[in-house]
Design a protein around this nucleic acid. Sequence first.
DNA 1: AAAATAAAAGTCTATTTAGTCTTTTATTCT
DNA 2: AGAATAAAAGACTAAATAGACTTTTATTTT
Lengths: 144, 144
Amino acid sequence: MLSRKCKYAIRAVLFLSVECKDGCKLKGGREISDSLKLPHAFTGKILQQLARQNIISSAKGPGGGFYLSDDNRKKPLIKIIEAMGDVSVFSSCGLGLSKCSDTQPCPIHDSFKTCRDELLQLFSTKTISDLSEEIVKSNLSLVR
Amino acid sequence: MLSRKCKYAIRAVLFLSVECKDGCKLKGGREISDSLKLPHAFTGKILQQLARQNIISSAKGPGGGFYLSDDNRKKPLIKIIEAMGDVSVFSSCGLGLSKCSDTQPCPIHDSFKTCRDELLQLFSTKTISDLSEEIVKSNLSLVR
DNA sequence: AAAATAAAAGTCTATTTAGTCTTTTATTCT
DNA sequence: AGAATAAAAGACTAAATAGACTTTTATTTT
C-alpha cells in the first residue's frame, strides 16, 4: 500500500507524539530508530525530510533532536503521506490505467474507488494528536 | 497497491477473456501487449508465468498463442494476484508491523483492516467471466 | 523433412526504492 | 574561544522491481 519509507515516517511521527508529550523533551534520531527498530541512517533521512516539510520540528546541537509543536500535532496523517510522496495511491486506478475515471471506468473502478476513498477518509480525518491519544489510551503498538 | 506486474497481468487476462470468447481464437503475446500498450517482452514473461500456474492456457507453434479455457474463466481475480505474488497486501499491516493483529493492533488497525477486507472481498468474488461480461456490457476500458 | 511460427526459458540491463557513510553546519556547555 | 553534540546535507551502495534480448522447444504448414 504505502512505501516502507512512508510507513516508517508515520511510525516515527506517532512515536514522537506519544513520547515527548507536554514536558516536550526532544528525541534524537538514534533513539527514535532504536525504539522503533528501524535502520537508523535511513530513519535520519526521513526525519530530516519531515522536518524540512514542517511535519515535525527539530533542534540542532547538544540536547537537540526532534519534537512536535502544537501546530505539528494538529495535522492529519495524510500530510505525512504527502510529504513522503505516496499520496497518489489514493487517486490512481486499481489496474494502473491513467485515464480511468467515473466517466471512463476500468472494470473494477466503482468498488475499488469506494475502498480507496474510505482509506483516504481515514488518513485525512485522523490527526496525529487523535492517534496519539488512542495509542496511550489503548496501549497500541508502533514496533514490530 | 498492486505491483505493475500484477496490474498488467489482470489486464492481460481480462483482455483475453473478452477477445477470445466462444470461437476461442488464440491471441499471440505480441497482439496482447500491443493492444494493451504494454512492454511486449515483459508482458511475455507475465503471460508465461500465468500459463505455468494455470491461470491462462497456451499453445505453441503457428496459430498458437494464449487463451482461456472454461476452467480458467471461472477463477476469481485473486488467483491472478496470488500467481503474481502480490497477495500479502491483503493481510499485512498498514504501518508495516509484522505482529499487528486484532489482539495487538497498530494505531490504524481497525479501519485499515476493514478497507483491506473489502478489497479482498472484491477480488475474491469477481471472477474473470463476471468481469468479462461487465466489460462487454458496459464497454469498460482496459487500455490507458 | 524442412521452414516457419510462437511460446518457454534463461540471461542480461535499467530504474526505483531502500539504505549507508562521510562531511558540514548550528547550538550548547565548559 | 574551544570541545562536544546532534541535525542537515550530500554522495555513495544494495536490493528489488521492471523490462529487454537471445536461445531453445514444441507445433504446424508446405
